[in-house]
Each structure stands twice: as C-alpha cells, then as structure tokens.
C-alpha cells in the first residue's frame, strides 16, 4: 500500500448508499489493521455518526473572515462594494452595509479600503466534531449551521482536521457542484456509488464527467443491483469504467439501514463483501 491513501465515496444522485458504503468500508479497513479515518463531508446532512456511533471527544467552531466597518474611518468611497463579487458589502446613500452570509471571505474589501476602515473578524458558520469508533477507526464530521449558504470551507476544515491516518475514507454529499469538489479534490481514488435505475445512471454519467475533469482515478459500485436492470452495467462497459462490486437489492440491508445498522455488522455475508472491496480499492488506488 502507498504511504497514505485517501478514498472518497461520491455519487451524482442522492440516496444511492454513499454513507452505507463509506461507513462499512471504514469499518472493514480498520478491522483489517489499517489506521483509518472516516470523514463525513456531507456537512448539510451528515449521517455517518448514526451508523458508526462515535464517542465525540473534540469539537471546534469553524468560521470565515467577514468585514467589520469602522463608520468613523469610512468615507463612503464605495470601493469595497465595487470589488465585492458576492454582494456581501454594498455602499448605498453614503452608508456601507454588510451581508455576512453572502461573504466568501476573500478579503478584497479590507485590502481595497483606502482609509483602513475595514477589519475582518471570524464568523462561525458550522462545527467540526472528531471522535473515536474503537479500534483503529477515527471519526470526523462537519455540521453546517441551518440557514447557512456556503459549505465548502467547512468541508475543507473536516478534511484538514482528520488527515494523517494511513487510510482516509471521505463521505461526500450528493451532486457534482462545489461542495462535492471540496470533498474529493486531491483524493487518490473516487468510488462512485450508483443504483441501476435511469435516474441513478443519468447522475452517474455526470459524476463520471466530474471525476474525469478533476483527473482522479475512479471505479463504480452498483448498489441495490437487480440482475435484469442492466443500465448501469451497460454504461460502465461502454465507457470502460471498472465495476468493483455489485451489492444486491436486499431487503435485509434496507431494514438494517432504516434502524441505523450497517450491513457490514448486522447482515450475513456483507463483512466479507466489504473486506474484499476495501482490498480491491487499495489495489486500484495504489496503481
């Protein structure tokens, strides 16, 4: 195995089984002796803790720098409003107004201000929690405050906080836009979880385009696989994408999931399936 590996689990469509697969893989990796970190980067709706049941032992707030205007120094020149691309600071009728939730923290306004009327202070918008799930398995997730717009800096904070283990498993949010890019940028391998439905395969195609654009090696897991539904299989064959495993459509898995139990721990046959899968991924990612 390469010195350190980071593997992300992603999907275009939601609800295809990212959390089931990534949490199971994290357990399988830890059980086979790898020092492992599970990072839940779906900060809008983090669920990994429901399955891994970690003991949280550390939490810290995450903030981004937003402007504070000293009205005594401000000459209402309007330069801050001109440089801001995000409508987070505007100058109207000789008044400077700030909208913190729109701010991306670029620092442009404070740099451009000719009278040094703008300073920055950190505004919290979410929290990162870390903990342990027993042997070899560290846990980390981010929780975006409700009503907050901008999640990528929190996702980056989760990845920074939990880095350092031999093997890191990143659980990404659904979709293909900036939060997913923040979760998978720079990882060694992306596992795309799909289901063999038309919606699943349509979104798999978009997700494949995304990982190709980012230049990351990838493979596919077909979840809830039904032999006669061949759409996902056909797509992977036609596009020369490796299918690492097909997980059958199994009511026992759905029932376990509904109660917050991983098939890896509670359903016969899945421990072996995920141990084999983690070995395959390590081999693929190490190439």
């Amino acid at each position: 195995m390469k010195q350190k590996l980071t593997i992300a689990v992603a999907s275009g469509k939601g609800g295809t089984g990212k959390t089931t697969v990534s949490a199971s893989l994290a357990c399988a990796a830890a059980d086979t002796g790898h020092k492992t970190a599970y990072m839940d980067c779906d900060v809008e709706e983090p669920n990994g803790h429901l399955f891994l049941k970690p003991t949280i032992n550390y939490r810290h707030m995450v903030g981004i720098p937003v402007p504070v205007v000293d009205q005594d120094k401000c000459t209402a020149c309007g330069l801050c409003g001109e440089i801001c691309q995000f409508s987070a600071i505007v100058c109207v009728n000789k008044n400077v107004l700030t909208f913190d939730k729109m701010c991306h923290g670029c620092g442009g306004c404070s740099l451009v201000c000719p009278t040094e009327a703008i300073t920055e202070h950190s505004r919290n918008f979410g929290v990162v929690e870390t903990g342990d799930c027993g042997n070899n398995l560290k846990f980390c997730h981010g929780k975006l405050d409700v009503g907050e717009i901008h999640s990528p800096p929190l996702i980056e904070a989760v990845r920074e906080t939990a880095q350092g283990e031999d093997l890191s498993i990143v659980d990404a949010s659904p979709g293909t836009s900036c939060p997913v890019v923040a979760a998978i940028k720079g990882v060694d391998y992306v596992l795309l979880v799909t289901e063999p439905t038309p919606f699943g395969v349509n979104d798999l195609e978009i997700a494949v385009d995304m990982v190709k654009e980012l230049g990351i090696p990838h493979g596919v897991v077909i979840n809830r696989s039904v032999p006669e539904h061949t759409l996902a299989r056909d797509f992977c064959r036609d596009n020369n994408i490796k299918i690492l495993v097909e997980i059958p459509d199994d009511r026992r898995v759905a029932e376990a999931y509904s109660k917050g139990e991983l098939p890896y721990k509670g359903v016969e046959g899945y421990r072996e399936l995920f141990k084999e899968l983690i070995d395959t991924i390590i081999e693929e990612a190490g190439r």
Binding site: E44, E45, I149, P174
Partner: peptide, 10 residues
C-alpha cells in the same frame, strides 16, 4: 428541489 439544506436548497 435539490437534496441538502445549503445554497441551492435555500
């Protein structure tokens, strides 16, 4: 709508 509670949902 999209999944989640972030930017596109808001």
């Amino acid at each position: 709508g999209p999944p989640g509670i972030g930017c596109p949902v808001i």
